[in-house]
Design a binder for these strands. Structure first.
Length: 413
RNA sequence: GGAGAGGUGGCCGAGUGGUUGAAGGCGCACGCUUGGAAAGCGUGUAAACGGGAAACCGUUUCGAGGGUUCGAAUCCCUCUCUCUCCGCCA
């Protein structure tokens, strides 16, 4: 969410920057709503002041007058509330502005390749897809019966592999990079979803659950970014406690609405998948330094596992709603002969902190915090990448050295 | 599911219809004191919104919404959350 005062002052700038993100701000509409809003507030305040004075007088002669003013205030209140709602909807659905070094473009075609890492294997046989490699242990038949499409049942060594990868990644991030491990709730309320930007604009992507008969809405988290970032919501963090770094492995739940035809085979796109997520809370001026650090943490996993990947700087058209700058890590998938996203590391500046009311005190002033999030990494896709990149001609898969101790010392599966 | 208690400032905690934005304490900031620190003393210290270049001014806010009243943190209603006990259960 943007600072409305800043927006008001720099309308043309925002208009232009938002256009880069495929958002066409209707300046006239915004200005009118904003003006009306403030006029209504001024009018109301004048009356309130008048009323206050009359009340304090304790003079019965004034009581009747005061009553009339109350009625007028109540009318103005209703108008203003309605007006504010419209204004808020605009404000709440404006995406973050991209930083100046972000490439401008309509979609992923304008993303900028930063660097490739690792060596793509030269297979002397035709590499199989992960589904072919582990057809016995990746069971879509049963998952479909149980839950429908885009779910999977992992069995045996593949279930072990999932657990091993999670533990391995958590260890790297907590021990080597000093992230604080968190085991958060997977169900959150509406305010929390608003805080990180999933609501109100992307409601159709979320799983809302019937929790009880109360009006309070509840959602399954689409990523633990939502819970980890909101750990600092509605609070003041001490400057000395910054930066905060959180890591969690959680299941993530996504409707995947609007991706009906995409990635229907295999484990690439699921309604439910595990993801190890990194979140940092920092002083805003340190966002970009932290972004580099976070990217290093995520890359490290693939370096250790020796899986080839590339880093891509996302263009304005491909970035997420809350991000000001995003790097994707894309991992090599032999069966598709291309790179696929396995991590997305974003700086959100103060955009989310504004929505969450997450502040810190500096020189006795209250300032909004900077927040960042990144996958470190998506477990489902990492399984796919590992199986495919490490497959052997006989159908076995070699376990990387660093993972062996998490895999009961198996060399191959 | 049954019964009860409670949501007040960064935190703790007073306050039951009229200068209460709200006593007191803690914390924090600054100053005095000290060789330095601690202790002690003094002063200051909420947020949101609106106006203003700023100093500053105004309005709102005591879980949320509604009601009573000239006037509500205080009374009434609805909702919500937290805690305790019992029941049930991983």
């Amino acid at each position: 969410m943007h600072n409305i005062k800043d927006l008001r002052k720099n309308l043309d700038y925002y208009k232009k920057k938002l256009l880069n993100r495929n958002y066409n701000l209707n300046i006239d509409e915004f200005v009118n709503l904003d003006k009306d809003n403030r006029n209504l507030i001024s009018k109301k305040e004048k009356l309130e002041q008048e009323k206050k004075i009359l009340s304090k007088s304790k003079n019965k002669a004034n009581f009747e007058k005061s009553k009339k003013i109350s009625e007028e205030i109540s009318r103005l209140n209703k108008d203003q509330a309605l007006n504010k709602k419209k204004l808020d909807f605009i404000l709440h659905t404006l995406p973050n502005l991209a930083l100046d070094d972000v490439p401008i473009g309509k979609d992923e075609k304008s993303n900028k390749l930063i660097k490739k890492f690792g060596k793509i294997r030269d297979f002397n046989f035709t590499p199989k897809s992960h589904v072919e490699i582990s057809s016995n242990e990746i069971d879509f038949e049963t998952s479909t019966k149980l839950s429908g499409s885009r779910f999977v049942v992992l069995k045996n060594k593949l279930a072990l592999l999932e657990r091993a990868l999670i533990n391995f990644m958590l260890d790297v991030h907590t021990i080597q990079y000093k992230y604080t491990e968190v085991s958060p709730p997977l169900i959150v309320n509406e305010d929390v979803m608003f805080g990180t930007g999933q609501l109100p604009k992307f409601e159709e992507d979320q799983f809302e659950i019937k929790f009880n008969n109360s009006d309070q809405r509840k959602f399954l988290i689409p990523t633990s970014e939502v819970v980890l970032t909101n750990l600092v919501r509605d609070s003041f963090t001490k400057k000395d406690d910054l930066p905060l770094r959180f890591v969690a492995s959680t299941p993530c739940f996504r409707r995947e609405a609007g991706s009906y035809g995409k990635d229907t085979k295999g484990m690439i796109r699921q309604h439910q998948f595990y993801k190890v997520e990194l979140v940092s809370v920092v002083e805003p001026k340190n966002c970009l330094i932290e972004l580099d650090r976070m990217l290093d943490c995520a890359k490290k996993i693939l370096d250790i596992l020796e899986i080839p990947y590339q880093i891509v700087l996302l263009s304005t058209g491909d970035m997420g709603f809350s991000a000001e700058k995003t790097y994707d890590i894309e991992v090599w998938i032999p069966s598709e002969n291309k790179y696929r996203e396995i991590s997305s590391c974003s700086s959100c500046g103060t955009f989310q902190a504004r929505r969450m009311g997450a502040k810190y005190k500096i020189n006795n002033n209250n300032e909004f915090l900077g927040t960042l999030n990144g996958s470190g990494l998506a477990v489902g896709r990492l399984i796919v990448a590992l199986l495919e990149n490490n497959q052997n001609e006989d159908g076995s898969v070699t376990i990387p050295d660093a993972l062996k101790k998490y895999m009961n010392n198996l060399d191959k599966i």
